[in-house]
Design a protein around this nucleic acid. Sequence first.
DNA 1: CCGCCAGCCTGAAGGC
DNA 2: TGCCTTCAGGCTGGCG
Length: 272
Amino acid sequence: MPELPEVESLRRQLEPNLTGRQIIAFELAMPRIVRSGDVRSLLGARITAVERKGKYLVIPSDRPAALFVHMGMTGTLLFQLEAGHERFIRATIRLQRGLVLFRDIRTLGGFWIATLDSPPWKNLAPDPLEPSFNLEYLSKALSHRKAPIKPLLLDQSVVSGIGNIYASEILFRAGIDPRTPAERLNARQVERLVELSRSVLLEAIESKGTTFRDFRLSDGRDGEFRQFLKVYGREGESCLKCGRKVVRIVQAQRSSYYCPACQKLPRARKGG
DNA sequence: CCGCCAGCCTGAAGGC
DNA sequence: TGCCTTCAGGCTGGCG
């Protein structure tokens, strides 16, 4: 699953079911999903909150240790009162009441057990819902960056929480060509990126995220934002603004979708 | 520091 | 019915 709206939707569903509950046991069907730390340091611990940082879920406890979860490409956390018959369950957290199942087809996600002041990430930028993600911040982060803006939106040290679907959606709504060198964006465009990153992610949260393929909410349901996607996955279909065909290109080994008519590159500079 | 690329994994879907 | 290739909501580490 993966991007901010999906992780935030999971967080909201899990919070009331996990907060205040004691961890009874970990059952690791695939031990290597524990990337660092020891799950034994959480046995008997009581969960005190379910938080999110970028695309990570952060689950602190009444012990020094906290559980960090990243969903990778295909991970999710299912909450069930009783064991079911789900496929691809890599780990099960047995609670005082209920079970948290880590379902991850491609096993690119994982668990980290660590203290809150030594999280698994380094250089994680603010996400677009944080006040510190503003024009001043983003202008500085993008200045002197010659790389195309689209892959930079996926760089979690520039802005956290945005992944491949929402990067294309944000750029479409901002009217910016994904190939635009970041340093060539003017202040007006950077401002639009700040505002639209925020509004697109908020709208997606309203719909409990996007299920394009594998993502499931913690109750097993699908996110409903897919119906509101304007370009992602719509190669060859008509642009919803102008009717021209949506194009797919590959940047940094990832698909980017955009409308060549609605999303323009800046004009080449003289001499340059 | 920056930009690019291979690699990590598994499963679904499409072509032949 | 295979067999093979391509494609996937992410991120890390290594190279130049």
